Amino acid sequence: MSIGRAALTRVCGKPVGPIGYGMLGLTLPAPFPEVKRDDALNLLKKALDQGANLWNGGIHYGTPDANSLHLMRHYFEKYPEDAEKVVLSIKGAFSIKTGPAGSPEAIRASVEEAFGVLGGEKTIDVFEMARVDPNTPIETSVKVLAELVKEGKIGGIGLSEVSASTIRKAHAIHPIAAVEIELSLFTPDPLKNGIMDTCHELGIPVIGYSPVGRGWLTGQFKKVEDLPANDFRRTHFPRFKAEAFDQNRKLVVAVEKIAERKDLKTSQVAIAWVARQGAIPIPGSTNPERVEMNSHLSELTDGEMLELREALDTFPIAGERYGGAHEKLLNA
């Protein structure tokens, strides 16, 4: 279950640290908490200073006028010297309302939008289709992305939430720079469905999003009432629903025991577990202290990894990851 990984890997030929930074929470519109631009820039700077130089954002992370790309432009206008230090992965060709758009025209439009917003302040090292378009063969989508690499619009091609067979089909058309998947103690599925094995076989770096289970593995939630009634997780994600809460809390308790024994936070154990699978975890936080803490990789012994595997077997997770229409787009 644990293969370990080198302390340093490369994405598109550029070195990245063992932990990256997920930018989703920095630009979400209301009703999510607002993060002021200067605060967001400071969080990004702190992450980079701690070695977390793989930054993962999306065109749909916010509004058409204020998303990850706009934030990146502001950051690199302020810190142009950091442009070569950061490996930027941007998801696009996707709309929260209408879903994935993998046609050649849609992909080109998405990349051109990203390219234009960045305004030359930073290159797009990896462009990811946020989800696979069920109406467009993956080979068709990858072919146009390969053209965009050749044209210098993007550095490499990323895939997100794809199956092992899709990875192989895409990689046969053009080398894939990275595959982004949800990977955590709450979502160990890629270890069982061939995704991780395929990426390791083909030498494709794996980016693990939601490594702390959307906050489950921070240890903050001991009862469902700890989440505000209007919290997006409580209202939209099945694993935070009242009927699943007590079952899912059992795994958290098991992880907390290891964390307490090692004088670590529960999230540090969770992130270390993802890294031990051979992935680059990309925790996201708007708390400066947590950003700093999350950026440092803790160590887990083989015995502790075995203990966590037994906990996974003993306390199966209740509830789907997303539920509804979005669930159907996973592992496509």
Results as ranks from 00 to 15, higher is better:
A83N: 07
A83V: 14
E84I: 07
K85N: 06
K85E: 04
V86S: 02
V86K: 08
V86M: 04
V87F: 14
V87H: 09
L88Q: 04
L88K: 07
I90K: 02
I90H: 01
K91I: 02
A93C: 10
F94T: 01
S95Y: 13
S95V: 07
S95H: 13
I96M: 08
I96R: 05
T98W: 15
G99N: 09
G99Q: 11
A101R: 12
G102C: 05
G102H: 10
S103I: 13
S103R: 12
S103H: 14
P104K: 10
E105M: 06
E105L: 07
A106H: 10
I107E: 02
I107W: 09
R108N: 00
R108C: 00
R108Q: 00
A109G: 03
A109L: 09
S110G: 05
S110K: 09
E112V: 14
E112I: 14
E113D: 01
E113W: 11
E113L: 11
A114D: 03
A114F: 10
F115E: 00
G116F: 13
V117P: 00
L118H: 05
G119D: 06
G119T: 07
G120M: 14
E121K: 15
K122P: 01
T123M: 15
T123R: 15
I124P: 00
D125V: 10
D125Q: 07
V126K: 03
V126R: 01
F127E: 00
M129C: 05
M129G: 01
A130M: 07
R131P: 00
V132K: 09
D133W: 07
P134A: 03
N135K: 15
T136W: 13
T136S: 05
T136K: 10
E139F: 14
E139V: 12
T140E: 13
T140D: 08
S141N: 07
S141C: 06
V142Y: 14
V142L: 06
V144A: 02
L145D: 03
A146C: 09
E147Y: 08
E147H: 07
L148A: 04
L148V: 09
L148F: 15
V149N: 02
V149K: 05
V149P: 01
K150H: 10
K150N: 08
